Simulated scan of single mutants.
Amino acid sequence: MTCLFRRIRFVLPTCLAGVLLAGCAPNPEIATVTVPRAAQHVSPAARALLPDPNPPYTPASYQSRSLAAYYGHMQDKLLASGKLRQDTGQGIAITADQLTKDFIDIAMKDEYMRGGSGTMHRSMDSVLRRWEKPIRVFTVFGATVPPTERERANALVASYVNRLARVTGHDIQMTTRENANYYVMFMGEDDRMPFGETLKAAIPEIDPATMNVFKHTPRNQLCVALTFREQNGSPVMGKALAMIRSEHPQILRLSCLHEEMAQALGLPNDSPTARPSIFNDDEEFALLTTHDELLLRILYDRRLKPGMTQEQALPIVRQIAGELVGR
């Protein structure tokens, strides 16, 4: 039996926007969970107490090296089965009707909502969510990430940030820790626990359950992404954090980076019919495709407004899709 390592995503738009799990569990699900919390301001004094984002290198433990071998085997299996394609999906036709459907499914649907008591309620339809203020991205590294890997990761993030800015037309740039509202963290198995102890200083919105997900991450959980609303109940994004495992081989690491950063812009769901797309749990594509760029262009088209319902957005989305790919 071929095992596909699918990502199971918990999107908590007002607190956590996504917890991406990938594993070999039978019949995995994709869950979207909404919790009523908003981004909070972090004082300069609190930021100064955060761990060094570029600490001295410390060799990884045996446990971390074993995980690296596990993920290397995972990547090899996926590549051998024709997965993790690194092209942009050229040659696959994209129609306006399909693009419209995919946008509604991916940008305007959640799968679950967490109530105030912590219980889970099904909540399929959502509203349009995106960033309105500039996005400032900063990379953070665990001590076990080798210096050469840090340089490579910084270059990959900077290149992808430039691409996302070009595609969306939104103001997205790399920045310093003092000005960041989007943290991209590359952490090994040995790094998350000590960093998690002080993470709440930068992300005070994180609840204990989410902190445990960050600190005690099972090996079938490839990546973790969190996004926070500007205000409680607001459809506007205010802060984001993504954690990428440093044990991942190159393609899996880049795949996590592409999907996490794009989803945190306001594409929280997946669709089994979206193709060619990274927002599809079949793992066919590893990197952002032309189809996915079109979804981002639609999301940040100024004719759409945060908070729009599906009914309000649908005719506008259909018009934009027609302009992008023809009728």
Rank of each mutant, 00 (worst) to 15 (best):
S159H: 08
N162G: 09
T210N: 09
M174L: 13
Y183F: 12
V157Y: 01
M193L: 15
Y160G: 01
D207K: 11
V184F: 00
K200N: 10
G169R: 06
A165F: 02
D207Q: 14
Y182H: 12
L156T: 08
N162I: 04
D190E: 08
T210H: 02
G169Y: 03
M187W: 10
D171S: 09
L199T: 02
V157C: 02
Y182G: 00
E197G: 03
S159P: 01
A201N: 10
A158I: 01
D190V: 06
A180D: 07
T176M: 04
Q173Y: 00
E197D: 13
V184C: 01
I206S: 04
A202C: 05
D191P: 00
N179E: 12
M174V: 14
K200T: 14
D171Q: 10
A209G: 13
D191V: 05
E205D: 10
D190I: 05
N179D: 12
M193A: 15
Y182N: 03
P194G: 14
M193V: 15
N181Y: 02
A158D: 12
P204N: 11
I206R: 07
R163Q: 13
R177I: 13
G196N: 11
M185C: 12
I206L: 15
M174R: 14
T176H: 08
R192L: 10
Y183E: 04
V161E: 00
A209L: 09
G188S: 08
D190Y: 02
V184G: 00
E189R: 08
P204F: 06
E189N: 05
Y182F: 15
V184I: 15
P208N: 05
G169M: 08
V167K: 03
D190K: 03
E178R: 11
A165L: 01
E178P: 03
T168E: 01
P208K: 06
E189K: 04
Y160Q: 11
D207E: 13
A202P: 00
E197C: 02
V161Q: 00
Y160E: 11
A202T: 01
E178F: 07
A209I: 05
L164P: 03
Y182T: 11
D207N: 14
T175H: 03
T175L: 05
N179I: 00
Y182I: 05
T175S: 13
T176N: 09
Y183K: 00
N181C: 05
E197Q: 13
A165M: 02
A158C: 02
A180L: 01
M193F: 15
A165R: 07
M174H: 04
A158R: 10
G196L: 12
D207W: 03
G196R: 04
I203E: 10
T176R: 07
N162S: 15
I206A: 12
P194K: 15
Q173V: 13
E178W: 07
F186V: 11
R177Q: 14
Y182K: 01
L156G: 01
A209Y: 07
R177V: 11
A180K: 02
E197T: 05
D191H: 06
G169V: 10
N179S: 08
R163M: 07
E197L: 13
N181T: 07
D171A: 10
A158G: 07
